[in-house]
Design a binder for these strands. Structure first.
Lengths: 146, 146
DNA sequence: ACATCAATGCAACTGAGTTTCATAATAGAC
DNA sequence: GTCTATTATGAAACTCAGTTGCATTGATGT
């Protein structure tokens, strides 16, 4: 099930349509949680042949255009989720250090005084990343079983 | 100038003293901003011969014992700063995506309702990382000159 | 002194992401 | 329509922070 007209989203963000770009955009957009480049490559390996370099290049492009968001994790790799242009409000993320799963958290409980931050800081601010590291429910349960 | 008795700090955190561990602890502890493993290796290359593997192993150990804090950056590498056991309160960091410099921010302006966050989340929380990405004063000025 | 265990060094490895350069596809010019 | 110039893609080799395996050194306790 499509959630959006991804092709239209690409073009209105000034990104020329290509099947590869659409494919990556769909995977990131339709995923309930931020995905890694590896996951994307793996998902694509079934349907379409697409070089990993192209995946990385498409991801870079989509991030640059604000269609998706690049989120750093605690394991030296990135996750990608729907971005500002995909009408996604900024929100924190949870990262499970056991299984590498990332998920989005509710922005409630998160009172970030962006204004005060920018004013107090001598430099240009691009983005703020808030990440909670820990162990997810699944991994906790699996641990308990042992 | 020493800021603390690092040797004592090591031992009271349950870390056997070795010259290598003290050397790393000093560099991280005396630095005004979080440092990368590369910086540590480079600083040490002058004074003492110390294998990079040992540096990484010491860093892992000190992080595990809470003496230093591992902070992820936007460039797939880590920075290390004084940790909880070094009487450092949690605080956000700024990361310059141009030069890779990281610095500590004042916790003011960041009202993070940690309590609500933990309660709303179904899993175990180890730590919360808040990172502001952007361009530092230095890099902004250098840019302007061109 | 001897045995034991931890700390260190060295070389080779890993894995996510990048660079280089060749080829294929697309878009404009004519 | 064909020709040319971008632009997108593919393939192989590379980079770079961090790891692993294993041998060596050093400390600790008896």
């Amino acid at each position: 099930m499509e959630r959006c007209d991804y092709r239209d989203m690409l073009e209105s963000a000034g990104v020329e349509y290509t099947p590869n770009r659409l494919a990556v955009m769909k995977i990131v957009g339709n995923s309930a949680h931020p995905v890694s480049a590896q996951e994307i490559i793996q998902i694509l390996s079934g349907a379409r042949t697409m070089n990993k370099v192209t995946v990385y290049r498409v991801l870079d492009l989509l991030v640059e255009k604000g269609l998706i968001e690049r989120i750093s994790s605690a394991d030296r790799s990135f996750r990608y989720g729907a971005g500002r242009r995909a009408s996604r409000k900024p929100h924190p993320h949870f990262f499970c250090t056991q299984c590498g799963h990332m998920e989005c958290l509710d922005p409630a409980g998160l009172k970030l005084d962006w204004q005060a931050l920018e004013e107090s800081f001598p430099g240009a601010v691009d983005k703020v990343e808030i990440r909670v590291d820990g162990t997810c429910r699944n991994c906790l349960d699996r641990e308990k079983d042992r």
